[in-house]
């Protein structure tokens, strides 16, 4: 089987409703899309369009009101809380806008965290973490604590944490939002490289410039996929929407 064509993430008519009655908010409405291995998909849309909700669904941090979310062919609803946690440890890597490193842990410990949580022996986990840090180009920062790193360095550590081990799905929520544009580009280059190496990536962003790194762009508005492009350059798509 061609790994590039295998589906890693599949959202099938996913609806997510927050609250009830008068306070009801439909964050996502019957959203469907697939991400295959080796593919980087950008999810775009204005504030409140449901981008982040989509990402929390994909990582099993939140459950859909209706519809199914499958990761590597497994319906997340069939896994318990613990099963979804295991899936996040082994299959999914998150990258957030505000880095979300744990300040009490050093860089290498932060990267080793998912493996350690999965019960991998600390020595092995740290070795893998050092390798991951090497891949993102900051092996020399392994023993630093997050408070003593720049934003770009912290985000590299976060990406290393997202890719450490054999994870095949990287979920990035505005990973460059807190960075200057030059550093942001480097981070996206890293993400692109990981996907080219076989991972499936979802990149939530509101900057068209960043969407250009993606293979496809899914455009959300008010919780609905309003467009999905395969090969069109994102800029063209955005122009046509205005």
């Amino acid at each position: 089987m061609n790994p590039l064509s295998s589906t890693v993430l599949h959202l099938d008519t996913v609806t997510r409703i927050h609250g009830e009655g008068a306070t009801e908010v439909r964050a996502l409405r019957e959203v469907s899309f697939r991400v295959a291995a080796g593919e980087l998909v950008a999810v775009m849309g204005p504030s409140g369009s449901g981008k982040s909700t989509l990402l929390t669904m994909a990582g099993g941090l939140d459950a859909p009101t209706s519809g199914t979310v499958s990761v590597e062919g497994v319906d997340l609803a069939t896994l318990g809380n613990a099963g979804r946690a295991r899936m996040r440890r082994t299959s999914v890597g998150y990258v957030f806008q505000d880095f979300n490193l744990i300040p009490a842990l050093s860089a290498v410990e932060n990267v080793a965290l998912p493996m350690e949580l999965d019960g991998v022996r600390s020595r092995a986990a740290r070795a893998a973490a050092r390798a991951a840090l090497e891949e993102v180009g900051i092996p020399e920062l392994a023993d630093r604590f997050p408070d003593h790193m720049s934003g770009g360095q912290q985000q590299r550590v976060a990406i290393a944490r997202a890719v450490v081990g054999e994870r095949r799905l990287i979920l990035a929520d505005e990973p460059t939002g807190a960075l200057d544009s030059e550093t942001g580009e480097e981070i996206l280059r890293l993400l692109r490289a990981r996907c080219d190496a076989g991972a499936a990536g979802v990149l939530v962003t509101h900057e068209a410039r960043h969407a250009a790194w993606a293979d496809r762009v899914v455009f959300l508005r008010d919780g609905v996929v309003v467009d999905e492009t395969g090969a069109d350059p994102a800029d063209v798509l955005l122009e046509s929407r205005r």
Partner: peptide, 16 residues
């Protein structure tokens, strides 16, 4: 809280 949220996101089980 923020640290626990991060732990959760990288796959810590609720027991953590």
């Amino acid at each position: 809280r923020p640290d626990l949220a991060t732990l959760s996101a990288v796959g810590a089980s609720p027991r953590r």
